[in-house]
Design a protein around this nucleic acid. Structure first.
Lengths: 206, 206
DNA sequence: TTTTGTAGGTAGACTGACCTACCTACTATC
DNA sequence: GATAGTAGGTAGGTCAGTCTACCTACAAAA
């Protein structure tokens, strides 16, 4: 029985490739595939094949597909924060720090690793989740954090005690979210650039 | 062979229910299920069971699931136009006609047949479709038509030759789209009402 | 320095559930 | 009699997830 000879022809001619960081490869493949095709439409086998990783490795690193999806959402949020902080460094005044949020979304739209822009990956994933799913809450948290960043920098633009900072931040948040959605449908960042201009004018009018 | 007795116990005790408009029942069930669970997550059998209709009837009326999805998208667009035209009738001036677009989305969010608001059904469906899919184009067309309606009524609000009608319409379109997305994540129409207020102020400031 | 244990890789067969799509056989309505 | 409905089976594929069997890199113990 031990010698059922199934596969694994006793090495010697197949020297076995070296160990690799399977988790990172899986997250990378998942990022590409989930974004491009959607979560439900992307099977486990497709991901492991694309990652060049054994199926067992997936289940060594993640308890289930749902957990991989959760890690994917987490990674998208972290990725955006990275893009944003880079844009924030370049900003030289409060107004530019507000607009850095918009620039970070444009950078996201132009990220090289995704072939074909299809809108916000987090929102797209949320669209596939049923009403009460924890993933939807994670996406909501992300959007609220973005709005919080907007609000913080809007408050620096407005004269102290102006009282409309939160309202303006919300206005900008809706504007950005909508432009992102439309940009995703059109497959390019034109809407995002347009909405950045609108946002700049709103800030100038204050 | 003709008498293999498989199922269909020769009627007499099962008098067969009367003929019903299967197509409409299917579209109704698809509307509920596709919206609540997503397109890919909803199987053919679930739809036919929910509709109380035979599987054959589905394939009598639609060549494939993809065609049912296309009809679903079409129906959502038509439904929104209906909601909008009702709101349009109540509007008494150009400004109210612009805001009627916002009200139509609020009505959509509060539509009784969907248990649990989850955002724009068209946008959610688009999120499941790969980049080049015809369904995505249909959704984009819908959004452009909505923006066109906005633009038409914005032009009536602005003084002739103002030149910023298209720009304002686009601003409002992004605002509305973003509020809808956020509202979907939060499961209620609060964001939509908020964005209607923002829109009203924008129109007042012109 | 050598041995050995362990954690985390490899390939891919397999299970049971579910998917789309088509099918048979029968019936109600126009 | 043609059309469109009924119930439900079936084919062929794909899904997530488990499993066996083997391999490699590293570190701690001998």
């Amino acid at each position: 029985m031990a010698a059922r000879d199934t596969g694994a022809q006793t090495a010697a001619h197949t020297p076995m490739p070296p160990k690799r960081p399977a988790r990172a490869l899986l997250l990378q493949a998942a990022a590409r595939l989930f974004y491009a095709q959607g979560v439900a439409a992307t099977g486990i086998d497709t991901i492991t094949t694309e990652a060049g990783v054994a199926k067992k490795s997936l289940y060594n690193n993640f308890a289930s597909k749902a957990e991989l999806v959760a890690a994917y959402l987490e990674a998208r949020h972290a990725e955006w924060l990275g893009l944003y902080s880079r844009r924030l460094e370049d900003a030289r005044n409060p107004r530019e720090r507000v607009l850095a949020v918009f620039d970070a979304y444009t950078d996201h739209a132009n990220a090289a690793y995704l072939n074909g822009f299809r809108g916000c990956g987090l929102l797209n994933a949320a669209a596939e989740l049923p009403a009460g799913a924890p993933g939807r809450l994670a996406v909501r948290k992300h959007k609220e954090e973005v709005e919080g960043l907007l609000a913080r920098h809007v408050a620096e633009v407005l004269p102290a005690g102006h009282g409309r900072a939160a309202g303006l931040a919300r206005h900008l948040a809706f504007l950005l979210e909508g432009a992102m959605a439309r940009a995703g449908l059109e497959g390019n960042d034109a809407c995002l650039k347009e909405c950045r201009t609108i946002a700049a004018r709103l800030l100038a009018d204050v």
